[in-house]
Computed example of a mutant assay.
Amino acid sequence: MRCTPPPERRDTAFALILTALFGACILLSIIIPSQICLARGGEAEEMNLSSDTALSKLTEGNESPAQEGIPVHVYITNNDNEKLDVSLFIDSELIDHKSISSGSDQKMDRYLLEKGRHTFKITWWDEDVKSSFEVEETRDITAETSVHLYTILNDKPEEYEITVNLVNENSRELEAFLYADGSFKKSKKVGKESSAELGKIKLKEGIHNLSVRWQDDDTKIEYEKTKKLMVKRD
């Protein structure tokens, strides 16, 4: 008899300004030396197998194959003035995501890639300008190498103070409502045939639409007059 181990994501009224179970059989052979009982007629012969021999035979052919590929070390430098959450893509596949402090370098990891051309891309969201950005680089990988990508500094756009004056050309007092790019900013009552400073508003550099709205008290009809404004540093 043989003993074996067990199996194993309207009117010009206004003018407007701005396996863990693999070793079951091995473990048994280590703790209790394997014994093979050979019955020959009425005699029993005992043969001891060393643990090392049993381990060697049981694990033979079970070794995992060596990983193949060219090592590529990817680093990212954050050149923005604040901490950024950066995502790394290799050949359009999301590989990793890390938070990187302002002005610091961060190694993403070491990746094994096939020989040939590969595209490395990082993306991030910049809260200052409320927009997402990306940087991409294509490299021909032929030997172990490093790839370094850099985020871009995006400063918060500077705002400029604009003074808005209203001129009421109507023969009655009217209440004017000022809008910038469709958003309400201020309101003020302006006497008949007079002008008034509505106040100051802040606008970023670029082209903006300023409009003033008012209502005719007799007809209850609302009118609007719009003016396009280019805001520049000078």
Rank of each mutant, 00 (worst) to 15 (best):
E136R: 08
E137T: 14
E137R: 07
R139T: 03
D140A: 07
T142S: 09
A143F: 04
T145M: 00
T145L: 05
S146C: 01
S146E: 15
V147M: 01
H148W: 07
L149K: 05
Y150I: 11
Y150L: 13
I152C: 14
I152P: 00
L153T: 10
L153R: 06
E158I: 15
T163I: 14
L166P: 05
V167F: 10
N170P: 05
N170R: 13
S171N: 12
R172Y: 05
R172C: 03
E173F: 01
E173L: 00
L174A: 00
E175N: 08
A176Y: 02
A176M: 05
A176E: 07
L178F: 06
A180N: 09
A180P: 04
A180H: 09
G182R: 05
S183I: 14
S183T: 13
K185C: 02
K188R: 14
K192P: 04
K192N: 11
E193T: 04
E193N: 15
E193G: 08
S194V: 12
S194Y: 00
S194A: 04
S195E: 11
A196P: 04
E197P: 10
E197A: 09
L198H: 04
G199R: 01
G199V: 11
L203Y: 02
I207A: 09
I207P: 05
N209P: 02
N209D: 10
L210T: 01
L210V: 09
